[in-house]
Amino acid sequence: MITAIIIDDEAKGRLALREKLAAYCKQVNVLAEASNGQEALLLIQHHKPQLIFLDIEMPKMNGFEMLSALSEKKFHIIFTTAYDQYAIKAIKYAAFDYLLKPIDIEELKTAVEKIEQKQNHQTQTQAELLQQNLQHPKKQLNKLAIPTLDGLLFFDINDIIHLEANSNYTFIHFLNKPKITASKTLKEFEEILPPGIFFRTHHSHLINLNYIKRYIKGDGGQIELQNGNYVDVSRRKKEEFLKAIGH
């Protein structure tokens, strides 16, 4: 049994989620529902749930603000939002789970199952990373939580030299740090990493343009990176790549 609290300012939103959980995720026990941030703070402290469904868009105190007001975060979070691309990106950076409204039943089931399987949570650290990213004056997201087989690891995206696809996993090479194996596809990384800095040179390579040492001409060519690794450029991407580095 997972104990949960639903936080959403719209009654219809809470109703829809509650009914879906009751019908399709019987392992979730909804202890309470909050219609705003303040109410939620009290309910969390009182019920100490294992999971909260948190709406971001709320009047007065939004979901992120409520989260930072909590000193202790001993629960899993599934964010729910109707539409906010910036917020979704920030959530992805912190490797939080999220659901788009209206909530798809299958997605809801998958998200709940994932949480059920998790031994422990890193909500505290993830929330800190989220705050750091949100507080960046230029709304730039720098800190990234990377899921690995050993749990979440936290990095600055500027330390990533290049990423290499390996079926459903991705090898990530860092500056002055050993490489790691992330349990996410290269495509997922490409979607969230800023396109001005990261460039997909090849179907299995994503590089940080700031770490190029030299370009070796060829059919598509090769790039030598500052850590001495060589990365292929596919023929299709060559022109776009040369443009990206200002040639």
Binding site: E10, K12, A16, E19, K20, A82, Y83, P102, I103
Partner: peptide
Amino acid sequence: NPHFIFNCINSIDAFIHS
């Protein structure tokens, strides 16, 4: 306004589930 659109759909979703 996308918020409006998705929240409308969400409200209708709530009627379905109730």
